[in-house]
Each structure stands twice: as C-alpha cells, then as structure tokens.
C-alpha cells in the first residue's frame, strides 16, 4: 500500500515545481552580555559585561561606565586594563587589549584579555573621565575556567610565545573563519602582541593508528592588527579535528602547536 503513496507522491511531484528555500536573513541583533562584576571609584561605577564566563583564552570584556551619583552613563573616558594573577610567591599579568577608543560604542567600552591560566584573577581597570577629569582604578576579582585555547610555546629563538585560538561558538562542517592571537612574554607583566610572523595551518582529522586526513582550500592566517591573525579553515566532515599551526619568521619555523576542536 506504501507504493500507492509513492505513486501519489510521484504524481504530485510532477506538478509541483522545485521550490528554492530562501535563506534567513542574518540576525543583526546585539549580542546579550551578562554582567560579571562591578566596582566603584571616585564617584564612578564600572560594570563589567562578558559574552561568556571567563575562561583560559581570548575573552572580550564590555565595560559600562556611569556616574554613581547621577547614574548617568559616561561615554567618554580613557581606560586601561591590567589583569593580574597573584600566585603567592609571584605575580604575573596576561596579554590584554585596551579599548581602542575613548568613546563608548553602543554604551560599552570593549576590550579583551587573554587569560593564560585558570584560577582567581584580579583585574585593575584604570579610568580617566573626560567630563570631570576624574580618574581612578577599580579592582575586581573573578574566577577563570580552564580551557585549552592558549598554548605556551618556547620558540627556537628562545622567546616564550602565547598562541591563542580565538574561540568560535560553533565549528561547522565546511569553511570557517579562524582567528589566532600571538603574544610574547617579555617580562612577568608584559605580553606584547607579535605582529611580524607568518602562520601556516593544517587541519587534520586523526582517526588513530597513524591514519587520518586533511582538507583542501584552507587559507593560512594572515596578520591583521594587534597580533591577530585571520584565515579560513575547511572541515570536510564532522568530528574531532586537530589544527596544526606553525609560526614562521621570514626564514624558519619558530614554533609549532596544535589545537583540537569539535566540528558539528
């Protein structure tokens, strides 16, 4: 009897033209941030919003600044960050990116920190308001969850590099944008961006027992600004992929590392 249905479907299919599914317009809504912490100094309130609970990796922070008395939002201020980890015997910082502008965008001053280890971190946010020229420092503390998005590698030039895979919510089968940050450690408190390297990337699906396969059409990450390198990675199938990355200067490979991602 099933076949009558087939026949019917077949009859219908003759008269029904093939419809193209129209793709949904891309969502242009602002991402919703969640509040991580807040602090006060010099009559100024700083609220720290995050996209995700802090983790070891590249974290974007969105700071909302207001006058604590008038509750008026302040959109012009100079802001600098200083992440600190106190390990008892020593303290160290992490790579970070101060807001690019003194002007808030959509009410936020956006900045970023690459947390290089998990645990309790302190962040000092120093500000200078432009309306009343008040300045001060807000200190907040929060926990950073472990993740494997930052690789610490000592290069063949004896420099310690931090290579960060900027987190992607969802790695998809097919072509994906991929972004890395590259920093080096010059002192416990100084982690400047490295802007003059070349990267070569090879995705590899390791199926165990010395077997696996790569994928074609990948685009090696190329430096943009502030130690950010952007490229394209092609995942031919779902599953667990290795992303092998070489950091090269003009002459040779300085450092190599591998990230593992799950592709849906």
């Amino acid at each position: 009897m099933k076949y009558y249905i087939y026949l019917l479907v077949f009859m219908i299919s003759i008269f029904v033209a093939c419809n193209d599914t129209t793709s949904n317009p891309t969502d242009n809504e602002l991402p919703s941030y969640s509040k991580l912490a807040e602090g006060f100094a010099q009559g100024t309130k700083i609220e720290i919003f995050v996209e995700k609970t802090p983790f070891v990796g590249y974290n974007r922070f969105h700071l909302a600044i207001s006058d604590s008395a008038s509750k008026k939002s302040i959109s012009n201020a100079q802001i600098t960050l200083k992440p600190i980890m106190d390990m008892g015997t020593m303290i160290h910082s992490a790579p970070y990116e101060n807001p690019l502008s003194d002007k808030a965008e959509n009410g936020y001053f956006s900045c970023a920190v690459v947390f290089i280890m998990s645990g309790m971190w302190q962040m000092e946010i120093s500000f200078t308001r432009q309306d009343n020229q008040e300045s001060g420092t807000v200190k907040v503390e929060f926990d950073v969850a472990p993740a494997s998005l930052v690789k610490k590698v000592t290069g063949s030039d004896s420099v310690q590099y931090f290579i960060t895979l900027v987190e992607n919510d969802k790695w998809q089968v097919g072509m994906n944008d991929i972004e890395f940050c590259l920093h080096q450690k010059t002192s416990m408190m100084s982690f400047p961006a490295v802007e003059n390297m070349q990267m070569s990337m090879e995705p590899w699906m390791d199926m165990g027992n010395n077997s696996g396969h790569g994928s074609p059409n990948n685009e090696n990450p190329v430096h943009q600004t502030m130690g950010h390198y952007k490229g394209k990675v092609n995942f031919t199938m779902s599953g667990e992929w290795d992303i092998n990355l070489d950091i090269n200067n003009a002459f040779t490979t300085i450092a190599s590392t591998k990230f593992v991602v799950t592709v849906e």
Partner: peptide, 25 residues
C-alpha cells in the same frame, strides 16, 4: 520528457581506536 532526480548519500566513520571521536559527512 521531464524527470526529477533526488539523490542523497552519507557516511559515518567509527575509529576502531577507542579514544578517537567518530566523524560524519
């Protein structure tokens, strides 16, 4: 003459080594 073809094919991959994740395409 008119005809319509609809064709689909897929593939699962199950590594024998236990700690490796399966893949699909």
């Amino acid at each position: 003459e008119y005809y319509q073809l609809a064709a689909f094919a897929d593939m699962d991959m199950y590594p024998i080594q236990a700690d490796k994740a399966p893949a699909y395409l």
